[in-house]
């Protein structure tokens, strides 16, 4: 909101000819300097939202608007996308092993991105690679740049991936489950690194299914359910006073850290609707405890305090 918004998605929909409606109204805003957590379960469309921002979503009918710093990304041509990807917005992926080309050295792959976007000589690009790797906390960056992806540990690979994403000083960094494929101690290090980046280098969109990750590293959060953003706002507000019944149920399902351990955690009955069988009303209505007649209509996504929520309870 306001003029500071770097990225603002309004009612983004993606319809795939075979799979059905993959995104069904994604609205979110990312301001400069924020770390926005995009949370949701598998199939809720969180990765797809990230890919759409880079124009890498699967073929299908995309409607709605994606404003990035005043430009509408939905009208980009192939050439404009090429200049945009990696330069103004970059992405890091879940599994840094498969995300790198296995047959080329790490340094060469980072160099490739730099030389695609910046008018640097090979030597200058290499110097930049080494300093980037160093900044990402990679030990002996010169030597690591000469390594192949399979020769590095998972944590180092992810650091190299982040170095590559930041190599052209993008304004937006989209991190698609960057810690899921890593072990716990490395996860924590990578999250610290992402937090630093969010504070210093670029705005971050952190896609995750882990509320713990959100609580640790994000400033804001958007909750996705079945291709719809149902609630968004600052992290503390959402965690303390979730408004949407889905967010409430989700947070209730986290085991308490103190006190007696419950025998069973509360669960949300049922399963999310498949993309080709989404309800026309509120997408959560079939599983919602406080469902009522008004839920037959799709609730509007509106502000309430510092939250935004799509639920008839707050209309």
């Amino acid at each position: 909101m306001g003029s500071k918004a770097l990225l603002s998605l309004r009612d983004l929909r993606l319809e795939h000819p075979r799979a059905g409606v993959l995104l069904d109204g994604v609205s979110l805003t990312l301001e400069r300097g924020q770390i926005l957590g995009v949370v949701g379960e598998s199939g809720s469309g969180k990765s797809l939202t990230g890919l759409s921002v880079l124009g890498l979503h699967p073929a299908g009918r995309l409607t709605g608007t994606m404003m990035f710093d005043g430009q509408d990304l939905t009208h980009f041509t192939a050439r404009e996308w090429q200049g945009f990807r990696g330069r103004r917005a970059a992405m890091i992926f879940q599994d840094p092993m498969s995300a790198f080309l296995p047959v080329r050295r790490i340094g060469a792959q980072i160099e490739e991105q730099i030389r695609l976007h910046l008018p640097l000589s090979r030597r200058e690009a290499r110097a930049r690679v080494v300093s980037l790797l160093g900044r990402m906390g990679v030990p002996s960056p010169e030597r690591t740049a000469e390594r192949y992806p399979h020769e590095l540990s998972g944590g180092l690979r992810q650091r190299a991936m982040i170095a590559m994403a930041l190599s052209c000083d993008p304004e937006l960094l989209i991190a698609d489950e960057p810690t899921t494929a890593l072990d716990v101690t490395v996860q924590a290090q990578i999250l610290v690194l992402l937090r630093e980046i969010g504070a210093r280098d670029a705005s971050v969109m952190l896609i995750t299914h882990d509320m713990g990750v959100v609580a640790q590293s994000c400033t804001h959060v958007a909750v996705l359910y079945a291709g719809v953003v149902i609630e968004s706002g600052p992290v503390e507000a959402i965690l303390k006073t979730p408004l949407h019944p889905y967010t409430q149920a989700l947070l209730r399902a986290i085991p308490p850290l103190s006190g007696p351990r419950p025998d069973r955690l509360p669960v949300i009955e049922g399963a999310p609707p498949a993309p080709n069988a989404r309800p026309s009303g509120c997408v959560f209505a079939p599983r919602c405890a406080s469902v009522e007649a008004r839920c037959q209509m799709r609730p509007v996504f509106r502000s309430r305090g510092n939250h935004q929520v799509a639920c008839v309870l707050y209309a």
Binding site: A90, F93, S98, A99, F100, L101
Partner: peptide, 17 residues
């Protein structure tokens, strides 16, 4: 279809590359 080609696209590589 490989993940690494998705990365290449995300880097801004053109079709020839």
């Amino acid at each position: 279809q490989d993940d690494s080609l998705r990365t290449a696209r995300a880097k801004g590589a053109g079709p020839w590359r």
